[in-house]
Computed example of a mutant assay.
Amino acid sequence: MNENDNHMEQGSAGGDPYALSAEYIDIMIAEPWEGLAPQVISVLRGLRAAEGVVVDLGAGSGRGVRAVREALPDVPVLAVEPSPAMRAVLLARVHDEPSLRTGVTVVPADASSAELPDGMRAMLALNVLGHLPPDQRRALWGNAVRRLAPGGALLLNVTPPLAPQPVPRTRMAHLTLGDLTYEGWAQAEPAGDDQVVWRMDYRVTRGAREVSGVSVDYRWWVIGDDALAEEVAAEGLVVRPVGGAESGLRVLTRVGE
Rank of each mutant, 00 (worst) to 15 (best):
M1I: 04
H7Y: 03
H7M: 13
M8D: 05
E9A: 14
Q10I: 13
Q10P: 00
A13R: 12
G14T: 15
L20T: 07
D26Q: 11
P32H: 04
G35F: 08
V43N: 02
G46D: 12
A50G: 11
E51N: 09
D56T: 05
G58A: 11
A59C: 05
G60H: 10
V65H: 02
A67S: 13
R69A: 10
E70L: 13
A71F: 11
S83G: 08
L90G: 01
R93D: 09
V94M: 05
T102S: 13
G103C: 07
V104W: 09
P108Y: 00
A109W: 03
A109Y: 01
A114Q: 07
E115P: 01
E115N: 08
L116T: 05
M120G: 03
M120I: 02
L124K: 05
V128A: 02
L129G: 04
L132G: 04
D135H: 11
Q136V: 03
R138N: 11
A139Y: 07
W141H: 06
G142C: 05
L148K: 01
P150E: 05
G152W: 09
G152F: 09
A153Q: 12
A153I: 07
L154Q: 05
L155I: 11
L155A: 11
L162K: 09
V167N: 08
V167L: 05
R171S: 00
M172A: 11
T176D: 07
D179M: 07
L180R: 14
T181D: 09
E183H: 02
A188M: 04
A188Y: 03
E189A: 14
V196D: 00
W198A: 11
D201K: 08
G207S: 00
A208E: 14
V211F: 00
V211M: 06
V211E: 10
S212F: 05
Y218A: 02
W220D: 03
W221D: 12
G224V: 09
D225F: 06
L228R: 06
A234P: 00
E235F: 11
A245E: 15
A245S: 13
E246K: 13
G248T: 05
T253W: 01
T253R: 15
R254E: 00
